[in-house]
Design a protein around this nucleic acid. Sequence first.
DNA 1: AATGAATGAGGCTTCATTCAT
DNA 2: TATGAATGAAGCCTCATTCAT
Lengths: 197, 197, 197, 197
Amino acid sequence: MPRPATGRKKEAILDAATVEIAAHGYHGTTVAMIARRAGVADGTIYLYFSNKEEILISLFERAMDLFTAQGARELAGLPGPRERLVRIVELHLELVGADRDLAIITQVELRHSLHFLDQLSRDRVGAYLQAMAAVIAEGQACGLWRCDLDATFLAKAVFGVLDEMATDWVLSRRNTRLQARADAVVGFVLGSLRPQA
Amino acid sequence: MPRPATGRKKEAILDAATVEIAAHGYHGTTVAMIARRAGVADGTIYLYFSNKEEILISLFERAMDLFTAQGARELAGLPGPRERLVRIVELHLELVGADRDLAIITQVELRHSLHFLDQLSRDRVGAYLQAMAAVIAEGQACGLWRCDLDATFLAKAVFGVLDEMATDWVLSRRNTRLQARADAVVGFVLGSLRPQA
Amino acid sequence: MPRPATGRKKEAILDAATVEIAAHGYHGTTVAMIARRAGVADGTIYLYFSNKEEILISLFERAMDLFTAQGARELAGLPGPRERLVRIVELHLELVGADRDLAIITQVELRHSLHFLDQLSRDRVGAYLQAMAAVIAEGQACGLWRCDLDATFLAKAVFGVLDEMATDWVLSRRNTRLQARADAVVGFVLGSLRPQA
Amino acid sequence: MPRPATGRKKEAILDAATVEIAAHGYHGTTVAMIARRAGVADGTIYLYFSNKEEILISLFERAMDLFTAQGARELAGLPGPRERLVRIVELHLELVGADRDLAIITQVELRHSLHFLDQLSRDRVGAYLQAMAAVIAEGQACGLWRCDLDATFLAKAVFGVLDEMATDWVLSRRNTRLQARADAVVGFVLGSLRPQA
DNA sequence: AATGAATGAGGCTTCATTCAT
DNA sequence: TATGAATGAAGCCTCATTCAT
């Protein structure tokens, strides 16, 4: 009888938490609900997470790790800032759009308290914004994009557009794919960065 | 004998709720905390609101009513879509930036559950987006702005930028004024709408 | 219908706690058990006590207040240290012996942790010991009692005898009265204090 | 191949339990804490003890066995009841004072429930009291000590004094040695037993 | 309209104990 | 013998809501 690989149970708990929290919200989900869906006892949760909130944080970090790894891999071979920014936009929509339950959590549930959002923002999202700002600064340096606005400001603006599209998709009942909006978003973003006449 | 204006107590409760929820989050705030700050008994809350969630909703609606009224008044006299859009952007940042506690609620606390956000989105935010889309469509019709992207899509993109700026401001510890970013945002938004070369 | 006097419910909770803790021990008693016996809801307990441990502390303090008040009243009129010490011994046994459930708590349950006992000891028991030491010192000053041992030491020794008698009575199944041992204890204590030959 | 002496691990568990329970109290100590300090797995504890409470009982019995053995050895050669009683008092204070952690347990933690204390009292403490009463009766028979009080009663009184001194020492923060009080206690006890004038 | 004491359902978490390896 | 991951029962406490006054 194959002994379950280390971490198999932790993954199961995170998967179960994703489904339950997406369906009922963080506060509407009990630890018992997560345990039941994961097929473990309530107490088992606490062998892997020190409390309920840590489950939510781990969920986000697991997703961000994948996101970051995928991003680093894909952007490595791209020649210029234009290609890289386009790929960032596409990847953002692809990855967020790949798992609706997870998207509900990142777009809605994770925003549930100032303290919480603050903490996430400062760490993982901050790094993401900086990476985007670096690409934009590079494009500004080539004369590709407008220089009258700060690269950090522009990164936030672009992030705002992506985030709004993701949230809008999550809230829309229609069975569309988030990725389907990639062309329009790319068009908007590239247009918005053109140098001023 | 001057009967106290109906709603005087209701206002006090909403004001108290704004402060408490901004400070402790929706789930971290108890009805008793709101009652104490408002100077009423716990039970009195239920004479004005049917449950805790309704307080949050009323909070948002009161803010949106002011927002909408102010918007309608200010936009009425403006000649063209460019002026109107600029004013929308400015007003959005002015009004959100006017009350940090309220901003914390609109930018953070109101996003705390799918059900909740969904409901708000469908009603008040939907109307706001439609109004913005109408202005943009008008600009597109004049040839002022790019027509290769749908006006509704563009409105969402602009809203995303505004929303991100507001959230970023709320999360930033620094004592800046949100309004201070209006010029940059206006610059970005107008740039992003220019017709494609 | 007579509205229950203020504190009536608090008293009921303390009374219920005395019975339950005496029967099942502090850790064997649940807050729900106390609530049920007191005829209140579980949550009501927390309107009067901030946590379970505070019930135990209040229990002890209520008893000590009665003890102290009674002691002060009775000792006031007594002429000399001999009479006062005799009355202290008698009162100790009378009052501890008056409520077996309460005695179980003071003699057994209150001793359940170093931190806890330490705290009680330092405050209320410390004051009691000091009062006793003062009476003994007075007797020493008159030449009534042995002076080769410190009054504080002697007070602890006398307290030890009283405490052991009380504990022994609590643990004995026989239906004796603690007060019945008063004469022997008085005889022992007075004998132990006689000046050395 | 030298098989590790049976009981080597059992001793380690008891030693670990002594330290942990002295530091955190019986209810504040988990089986896992004891196992960790003893360097064994949680489950291993149950190979040597049938449950948590049995650890506490074994602890006490191990201590009492040493106590009793030492007592029997030391008292054997002593000529009269006076010398034996003096040695009992000294030994009590020496042995309790030798291990502060163990003393915390015997003076505080073991008293935590009626059921528990009752059981201990009946067995080991009962035997100790009887031994002491026998010595006292002997002294009474020689005319050495007062006969107007029952030897069993006097033994309890003496035990109360010893127990109170031990508890007082455990609770005192000062770094005194319990043994240092032996002379005073001997003086008190012998004085208290003198025949009445 | 207003009060605020009372309710009681339900959540998170702990931890003694077991058992497959 | 030994392990330690897993169990799951049960407890303390919170707090939205009610209702007698």
